[in-house]
Design a protein around this nucleic acid. Structure first.
Lengths: 244, 244
DNA sequence: CAGTGGTCTAGACCACAGC
DNA sequence: CTGTGGTCTAGACCACTGG
């Protein structure tokens, strides 16, 4: 288990990249307001003493990364991430009527655990830093379609430990923002196949073929803020991708 | 060549999009040379009577779509698609030494077949248009790691029918360009799981768990030029993706 | 060296949202 | 109406490639 984002540090960056980075820093410091725009391009041009075109190129970069969205006539905003259905997008699950159904998320347990070498390394945490560990299910009605194990750095997510299970929202990522000020902007996932996975909830104790999804979620400052393992029945597996 | 906003039936497109489309058309007409650059930005600006910035934006679009690549100091070129390992990128196969190995492609059969409703629809061909059908294996040494079935429109790929099996290259897509003038620029893939797939070569007649990859490959003019089904052993499945 | 793409400027006008 | 992002111009200079 050794996948990670690479860090590229440069010496002499073009102005538009410097500005891009600075804007990103400002977003972190200011705290994110999804409903109020960032300063206008004109204002940014004045602030950074650069031309509009250069500002646009900097903002373009953040838009491409999915961190900002432009709205003509209104302004440029921090993107409200929509992971609504993304968590279960690898699987097909439909009602009897044939409609796509959005699974419900239920947290089954929350606890503090000691650091685990392998996971702390993925999270970029010190070797023995404590973690927050969640178990969670995704349900379609009565049916369990996804079983999840989630590890978070306690340094950033300690507030979750003081909440009752009923206090957790259906969607976790907006909840992270609300409770801990942690914004997930992108994620890297690895899919593998397990012939014999066993789990009380998902497979009801019998060994079954599953697809395992390992996810590293990245925060606004570029650090990894969540490691998650999700398991779903292989028979329901369904994924589309575009390559070029 | 006149690009003014005129009496078009179409909605009015920004100039840079009109130019982008026109460049793409020119690439098709000119036939692709991977080793000679397209006209310089200066030349294009003169040809289209637009400013450099607008030309850059048009070319940027084609670069983002993976059709062109820029090389500072040299020029802008049609991208030599690198599907070298992409066909088998969903699977992990390594030598005993642990190196990633690039599988070898071997075509087992080529024949003309009657149109199949479902497939002709996917290819955008008339209902009874004949097809070219290939069977192909991907091998690591002796081991079969991928079994493929490929359907192509005869209208574009008839030349393949006159070739001996030994004449087929290891890589198919560069071969398509060379033999039929068909360039694959992108593809859409759908992954699903089959619990009991049986195949003489891949599973040696025994039913096994496999991952099925259905691919639609798109040509330079945007039409679908290939439909392909690939099957690989589920145990070897391994895929990474970034979402945002 | 000449020619290419890469960055950057300092404006202009257009299209759209919201008051 | 004002202010926003979206398009476009006509240059400039820099960084890199190749002969």
């Amino acid at each position: 288990m050794n996948f990670s984002y690479e860090n590229n540090e440069q010496a002499k960056l073009p102005l538009y990249l410097q500005i891009k980075r600075q804007i990103q820093q400002n977003l972190i410091q200011a705290g994110w307001q999804f409903d109020t725009p960032i300063p206008s391009e004109h204002a940014l041009a004045a602030e950074f003493n650069a031309s509009i075109g250069t500002i646009r190129k900097a903002v373009d970069g953040l838009v491409e990364e999915g961190i900002l969205v432009r709205q003509q006539g209104r302004g440029t905003f921090i993107r409200q991430p929509d992971f609504t259905s993304s968590m279960a997008r690898f699987f097909r699950h439909r009602t009897k009527a044939g409609e796509q159904q959005i699974p419900v998320g239920v947290v089954k347990s929350v606890q503090e655990v000691a650091g685990v070498d392998e996971i702390n390394r993925l999270l970029g945490e010190p070797e023995n830093a404590p973690l927050v560990y969640l178990e969670r299910l995704r349900l379609n009605g009565e049916k369990v379609i996804l079983s999840e194990k989630i590890w978070l750095p306690k340094s950033k997510f300690a507030p979750l430990l003081n909440l009752p299970l009923e206090g957790f929202d259906n969607l976790l990522y907006p909840f992270y923002v609300q409770q801990c000020g942690q914004l997930v902007v992108s994620a890297k996932e690895r899919l593998t196949f397990l012939a014999d996975y066993q789990d009380e909830e998902l497979t009801q104790g019998e060994a079954q073929a599953v697809i395992k999804i390992s996810r590293l979620a990245k925060g606004l400052d570029g650090s990894i803020i969540e490691y998650r393992e999700s398991y779903g029945i292989a028979q329901d597996f369904y994924y589309e991708t575009i390559i070029s």
